[in-house]
């Protein structure tokens, strides 16, 4: 069974620039959040909160990932920031 690991350490990714869901990635909504599958690199990743899924889907409407993060409640922001950085580093997000 799949479930590839995204490197737990938040990698260095510039979230000050625009990001969006990679065009080859499909999201399947699930009670826990969503499954994200990248048809290109065949990675399957669990997005483990509906809020994170909303955030990921909202990225394309913002000039930068940081701007999208402004909508996340401050105590949660660091965790979601790290999650976006990991998604970007694993190719799930595309620099827009």
């Amino acid at each position: 069974m799949p479930g590839q690991r995204v490197d737990p350490a938040a990698p260095e990714v510039d979230l000050g620039r625009p990001w969006r869901l990679h065009p080859q990635v499909a999201l399947r909504d699930e009670p826990f959040g969503a499954l994200a599958y990248h048809y290109g690199n065949r990675r399957l990743i669990f997005l483990r909160s509906p809020d994170l899924v909303r955030l990921v889907r909202s990225l394309e409407r913002f000039d930068s990932a940081d701007a999208a993060l402004a909508a996340v409640s401050p105590p949660q922001r660091a965790a979601y920031r790290a999650a976006l950085a990991r998604l970007a580093a694993s190719g799930m997000l595309d620099a827009g």
Binding site: G3, R5, F32, F46, L47, R48, D51, A83, R86
Partner: peptide, 14 residues
């Protein structure tokens, strides 16, 4: 850790 590999809460859900 919202995008990590599944932990036990997610495992229960699956």
């Amino acid at each position: 850790m919202p995008a990590r590999a599944p932990g036990s809460a997610l495992r229960d859900e699956l």
